[in-house]
């Protein structure tokens, strides 16, 4: 379990006494994921790591990274995949469903209420102006996430990666080609290239 993490000053805030905590039950899974999800503005990942690794100690940091890497390479919303994989690892399919319901259920209620408010009041001028301002800032946040993700490629001088990145950007962003078609071409090409590159390095 997690003895590889050095015994730093951990005052064990709200863990009963067991450092290697017992596997969570269905209700604990639901509640934990609901909390992470409702705390997460602009992405839940940070809160998921904090909850699973630091607070509940259900996984070590390495286990969490491995699980997240798996969920990142699968299609679909990463954090949703993570909740299912995580929950089912402890409690089988019911555990996966409990974590999924906790992650998605409560915020869906919030968002649906917001959607109803928007449908009713969306044309009010003040609200229109506020939303216009929020969307400008929200686009900025998205762009900053793109730059953050690009930094490792730039630092590594990963020219092939940057060319693939640019090609996908042009195909989807400028030419507006359908996503499945672009992926059916780009993924095999990219996988083949990185396979060849790895073999040459190894």
């Amino acid at each position: 379990m997690p003895p590889d993490s050095p015994p730093v000053a951990v005052p064990a805030p709200d863990i009963p006494e067991s450092a290697t905590s017992t596997p969570p039950g269905l209700i604990a899974l639901f509640v934990a994921f609901a909390k992470m999800s409702l705390a997460g503005f602009g992405g839940v990942l940070v809160w998921a790591r904090r909850g699973i690794v630091d607070q509940h100690r259900w996984m070590t940091a390495d286990e969490f990274n491995e699980t997240f890497a798996l969920c990142h390479f699968l299609p679909g919303p990463n954090i949703v995949n993570l909740s299912v994989v995580f929950g089912s690892r402890f409690r089988g399919i019911p555990g996966g469903l409990a974590a999924f319901a906790g992650l998605v259920g409560p915020p869906v209620v919030v968002v649906t209420i917001l959607a109803a408010l928007y449908a009713r009041y969306g044309e009010i001028d003040a609200l229109r102006r506020i939303l216009a301002g929020v969307s400008c800032a929200a686009v900025g946040l998205l762009l900053s996430a793109v730059f953050r993700m690009m930094m490792p490629l730039i630092k590594r001088r990963d020219l092939i990666g940057l060319v693939i990145l640019a090609a996908v950007f042009i195909a989807v962003g400028l030419l507006r080609l359908p996503l499945p078609a672009v992926l059916l071409v780009a993924s095999p090409v990219s996988i083949a290239i990185s396979f060849v590159v790895r073999r040459r390095v190894a």
């Binding site: 999800s37 503005f41 998605v104």
Partner: peptide, 9 residues
């Protein structure tokens, strides 16, 4: 904008 303003994934 609304989806970014609300909590959750």
């Amino acid at each position: 904008a609304i989806s970014q303003l609300s909590p959750g994934p």
